[in-house]
Computed example of a mutant assay.
Amino acid sequence: MRIELSGKTALITGSTKGIGYAIAKHLARAGADVIVNGRTSSGVDHAVGSLQGEVPDANVTGATADVGTPDGCDALVASVPSVDILVNNVGIFGPQDFFETPDATWTEFFDVNVMSGVRLSRAYLPGMVEREWGRVLFISSESALNIPPDMIHYGFTKTANLSISRGLAKRVAGTGVTVNAILPGPTRSDGFESMVGTGEDADETAEEKARSFVMEHRPSSIIRRAATVDEVASMVVYAASPQASATTGAALRVDGGVVETIA
């Protein structure tokens, strides 16, 4: 199956590195015009340059905006008024005990992980409906279903992503626009590797440390390793494709089998 996205414009929030960068790269390889987003001009410029080096024929541009704020979302929409594919990828995470997590942290996680996608979907979906084609994707997590006890404030935001994506899919039913959520499991992104660290054994590689983390903290994993950012990006590209026109309102797992369910 060859996925062709020429003529489509894709905006990926939080895409200067990690999963977001990989999504931008794979969408560009499929022919989409890609807009990279990040909070700083230097980060955006660096990512755009790297993508142009990796995918020389791609049309890649940047849009600097902090989409974790209402003003940032407004600024992004003003500079990019229309897209065909919206990937609500931006997110923050980190362990913290429930009893030590202040209101400000809950609010920050909600604003970045949830409201960014709400605001941008509200801005871009009407145009997609009018054109009778569009794709909105929320990057959720297996933590939406398998709430981590040390990151409850994170897990609830990812569950919210599932509710919003399912509801929006129903809201735009029959229009040719699909809305889905992607649920990665432990993934070897920059943020994940920073959280996991290099390991007590200096000879332990990042891959081995990630595997050890998975086996200790996600022992239900069937692949028994962390996924790569490219594996997550491949699912996103499919969900964004014309071939996925009958897939909507879904929670598409790239979790390595961590979630203990066959449904």
Results as ranks from 00 to 15, higher is better:
residue 1 M to R: 13
residue 106 W to H: 09
residue 48 V to Y: 00
residue 115 M to D: 03
residue 76 L to E: 05
residue 91 G to K: 08
residue 165 S to L: 07
residue 126 P to L: 01
residue 14 G to D: 07
residue 260 E to M: 15
residue 225 R to T: 15
residue 225 R to C: 11
residue 163 S to Y: 05
residue 134 G to K: 06
residue 111 D to H: 13
residue 262 I to K: 12
residue 186 P to R: 01
residue 74 D to Q: 13
residue 254 V to H: 12
residue 223 I to C: 11
residue 180 N to Y: 06
residue 137 L to N: 02
residue 220 S to Y: 06
residue 60 V to N: 06
residue 173 A to Y: 04
residue 101 T to M: 07
residue 222 I to V: 15
residue 125 L to N: 08
residue 231 E to P: 10
residue 89 N to H: 01
residue 171 R to I: 01
residue 134 G to H: 03
residue 192 F to T: 07
residue 126 P to Q: 03
residue 181 A to P: 04
residue 55 V to W: 03
residue 247 T to Y: 05
residue 111 D to K: 13
residue 14 G to I: 05
residue 213 F to Y: 15
residue 132 E to K: 13
residue 110 F to Q: 08
residue 86 L to Y: 02
residue 19 I to F: 05
residue 116 S to P: 07
residue 36 V to T: 09
residue 259 V to P: 06
residue 45 D to P: 04
residue 211 R to V: 13
residue 117 G to M: 05
residue 90 V to K: 05
residue 179 V to P: 11
residue 89 N to F: 02
residue 181 A to E: 05
residue 29 R to W: 00
residue 68 G to R: 09
residue 249 G to T: 04
residue 190 D to T: 13
residue 196 V to H: 07
residue 175 T to F: 02
residue 255 D to W: 02
residue 240 A to L: 03
residue 241 S to W: 01
residue 93 F to P: 03
residue 155 G to T: 03
residue 77 V to T: 10
residue 76 L to N: 09
residue 103 D to N: 09
residue 59 N to L: 09
residue 231 E to L: 07
residue 31 G to Y: 00
residue 257 G to D: 12
residue 33 D to S: 14
residue 210 A to Y: 00
residue 217 H to G: 04
